[in-house]
Design a protein around this nucleic acid. Structure first.
Lengths: 197, 197
DNA sequence: CCTACCGATCGGTAGG
DNA sequence: CCTACCGATCGGTAGG
């Protein structure tokens, strides 16, 4: 009778282990047999919990997209705050999502192209919307005279690129906490942009 | 008799087409049959020109590594130049290599992990050496009082991350030439670092 | 969750 | 450069 809870946690466990394998070997090079072995069961048994290999990838990619949007919305909720503050909060929020689960983040950043259509197109649309939101914030900052930069698109691209490199070198047991990293990244990346009084 | 030249160019052609497939689908998800079809021949025929699928990846990854080192060496050849100048030249050189062949660059940046040992370890050692060279340059700049930054390693990481995002959005037929992009990236990335007089 | 298995496809080779 | 093929492995399913 009490099967709902164990099933849910088993599925979550499959997602978690699969995600770490996808990061280590890539989605295409990870076999369901490898995943099953890591979980201590047979390959066929996986399919009583999931529908397909891609379903896992789909959940990881779209789940993280949702987290990024939620963090951005929270960072920019107070529209009366200075744009520089909103941008700083958005950077910190982005970093917080990236470091909360760096395996999932890496899969989100690198393995989305193994999604088949139409999921792949949908995913790219979400990513573009997110980048556009960052770009718009930078643009507002320039318009408000809080930031100086010749090209908001360039700024947004290099900003996100710098942040998205984080999962490649972040170690949870490193010297800096995620919040400290976020703070330093925000300082450094905004340092050259802020208009000095 | 005159077989050396055609064979050499056929091999180069295989590398080129394979590289673009590796970028589009990833190394693991690209099949030799797909590659053969794209080249207008049968899968088995590939092996009179190459030894293995991985051999192609190896050539691309290590070939590009060599190009990056050569560009860096040229940029820093004049050790009497200000560090800021050397750093600017190194950034421009890096961008020039990235844009000269953005398919190969993407493979270099994303697919190296499909190299088997010991090539994979060798490759990572090269990448670390390259990052260390950039880091050392930033450190020299700070020591010389030309740059101000709290952490050279942080600067080097975000610098290279910003540059390495370029192949993801660079279009050869875009508005900006590679040199213009390189110049703007250098300006923006060094803008916040340079000590104002 | 397992056993047993499916058809498809993989990288690569032999021999010409 | 092709034909014909190898053993291995793939994602996934049927039936229990």
């Amino acid at each position: 009778m009490n099967t709902a809870a164990p099933l849910r946690s088993r599925k979550a466990q499959i997602d978690r282990v699969a995600t770490s394998l996808f990061r280590a070997r890539g989605f295409a090079a990870t076999s369901m047999r490898e995943l099953a072995t890591e979980l201590g069961l047979e390959a066929g048994s996986l399919y009583s919990h999931i529908k397909s290999k891609e379903e896992i990838l789909h959940r990881v990619c779209f789940g993280l997209a949702e987290e990024f949007f939620a963090a951005f919305a929270a960072a920019t909720a107070d529209t009366t705050a200075p744009i520089a503050t909103q941008l700083r909060l958005a950077i910190e929020g982005h970093v917080r999502v990236l470091t909360r689960d760096s395996a999932a983040s890496t899969v989100f950043l690198q393995e989305w192209r193994h999604l088949s259509e139409p999921a792949r197109t949908d995913f790219l649309a979400l990513r573009d919307r997110y980048e556009a939101a960052f770009r718009a914030l930078v643009q507002q900052g320039i318009a408000a005279g809080e930031l100086h930069a010749p090209d908001a698109a360039f700024v947004a691209l290099t900003l996100l690129a710098s942040l998205n490199w984080l999962p490649a070198w972040y170690r949870p047991d490193g010297k800096l906490t995620p919040d400290e990293i976020a703070h330093r990244l925000a300082e450094q990346l905004l340092g050259g942009l802020l208009v000095k009084d």
